[in-house]
Design a protein around this nucleic acid. Sequence first.
RNA 1: GUGGGUGUAGCUCAGUUGGUAGAGCACCUGGUUGUGGCCCAGGAUGCCGUGGGUUCAAGUCCCAUCACUCACCCCA
Length: 418
Amino acid sequence: MIQLIRGFKDILPDETPTWQHIEKTATALFQAFGFSEIRLPIVEKAELFQRSIGENTDIVEKEMYTFPGSKAELITLRPEATASVVRSYIQQKLYAKEPVQKLYTIGPMFRRERPQKGRYRQFYQINAEVFGIASPYIDAQLIFMLWSLFERLKIGGLSVQLNSLGCPACRPAFKGALSSLLASKTDDLCSDCVRRLDKNPLRVLDCKVPACQEAIREAPSMIDFLCDDCTGHFDAVKSALHSQKIPFALNPRLVRGLDYYTRTAFEIQTDALGAQNAIAGGGRYDMLVKMLDGPDQPAIGFAIGLDRLAALMMQTAPEKELTPELFIAALGEETRDITFEWSCALALEGVRTEIDFSGKSLKALMKRANRIGAAHVLIVGGAEIESGAVVVRNMATKEQKTIPIDGVVNHIKTYLAT
RNA sequence: GUGGGUGUAGCUCAGUUGGUAGAGCACCUGGUUGUGGCCCAGGAUGCCGUGGGUUCAAGUCCCAUCACUCACCCCA
């Protein structure tokens, strides 16, 4: 038996209605906020991710599916979507038509991590990105939109974590202060953090090893180092969130794993999903468009982890699978042709119809109709054909009615509508 | 990459000090010549994850390996 690859999964029919519900709710909401869909390839040049995400991140160092696309070029299964959206914004010169672009996209991402609950090697995200708006109001609106989505999906137990990562004007001072503090405590840090020290000292802040937590107790907070502009921006975001009654928690430990983030960083967390508690995360990335050879345009975005969101919904409010409205129980060979025609015609009329060709006993057919949740059964045997009328049975009430064969499709539609 | 747990019927699981495999649910047939759920009777179902070893004999003991899973790491 051939099995699927480690870390990959099938999303089966018992779960797809929930996925569809999430996607429909999200896209309707995003469109109401002025977002348009963009569809992008799932492979890009490896260089795109190396330059945007950052060479010394775990993703680029060891988690990307990268392979030769031609003799001279490495291509990569995208580990995230933002880089591709930015690439498209630049390459297609969307900014020339209109610098402000609000875009969303849905699709699979790939990272070669060790799988666990809520973490797969192919996982799905809904991304929303806004280009060309520097105002803190858009930061707040994005978080508001995200929060509204979870409200519409009736998901509780969530918290909004908020932080500011500063900008090129103020982050270096913070990094320096943090680095020198950490350097003095090297002996207390775990081996991972020692390695992070010179590569990405910010990451030490959210290390979960107790010894490291202890070591960074007196660590400086980015918020204390923010320059005037960043402070003003951050304050404006917070007050806009307050005015919209979004509950949020300041979290100085919230550090984005990707290099390109600046200023506002946020995450939506749940307590119901084990260790992988982030179901959405995002932030501002004002430098990235320029870094990738585009115009100097600010940007902000977020990604929702669809797999995790779907897992949450399955626990609380799963969408039900569609069941047949009508099950056609055709008895005997002589009824096969006519019932086959009816089943096709009914389906075209929008009636969810199931027909059984197996020729089993009526008892067996009724059993199957019951099992698959059919609301009504149309019983068609030789006797019915002769008498010119078929029987339709309501499975819940056991009520049965006869319906003339002449114009049967319309008769059934009318019957089902009542 | 590192650590823990688990692999036996479609599903959930039991399996004694080693003696060649079971239950419940689900499925099929019948009890009802053409009527589902409840009930009753009967029936089918397993390379016991895989490979090797010990033994007269291995689901059970030993070694290896793979898969699943949870956690670390990292993140959605």
